[in-house]
Amino acid sequence: MARPAFGILGRVGERRSPDGVVRLDADRRLVEEARSDPARFEALYRKYVAQVYAFALYELRDHHEAEDVTERTFMLALAGLPRFEERGAVPHAGRPDAGGATRGAAARPRGGTASVDDAVPDPADASSFRPWLFRIARNVVAGQRRTSRRRPTAPLELAAGIADPLDVAYDAELRDEARTAWSAVDRLPDDRRRAVVLRFVEEMSAAEIGEVLDRSEGAVRVLLHRALRAVAADLRRDESGRRDGGTP
């Protein structure tokens, strides 16, 4: 899956791993093709449509609204593609940050040359297009919420399909635990809940989530840590409730 390539070192969008191989942004080729011929945007669409849809569904808990958000996200992405700037620093794991601080746009390197020290070992599939796309999705979701003027009413575990009694994939106990865990996620503050969904459902790195939520990487790690602590506390309560013989 890794796409090693050899070229000019230190250019934005390229990351060098300790083995000296320069890795290009995973979506660079697709983005460049779509820029030169917008009809080829379809490849990026096919790659990310399910992820964007899942994010929208977890946020809005409504299938139709999620479809609407997905469609508008990709239309806006297509329109905004010429303005998209590939950023080599997106998946950077070692960027200094003040935990909990919101990172300003000015702090992000745009254009110019990135030092080789900025390059760190990253997952080979790291992309700066994906966080950019999800930022659009996040904004479209916010707009959708303003328009519909209502908060999602369906519980997260229902939206996630965990409570589906016809789903034989989960045994009863795991389903109970899963329901407790996702209910706990549902009760988290928006940013923590979003971070959990992006981490566990979309499998984004903390750095990518930081780009989406406009937070530093360290702040995202703290968000996730606190979120998991809250989920663990709920699971503990649930477990002790079951042990005591009563309903949790």
Partner: peptide, 10 residues
């Protein structure tokens, strides 16, 4: 969460 995260598909 990792084991039960569900990814819906349009």
């Amino acid at each position: 969460l990792h084991a039960t995260a569900w990814r819906p598909h349009p």
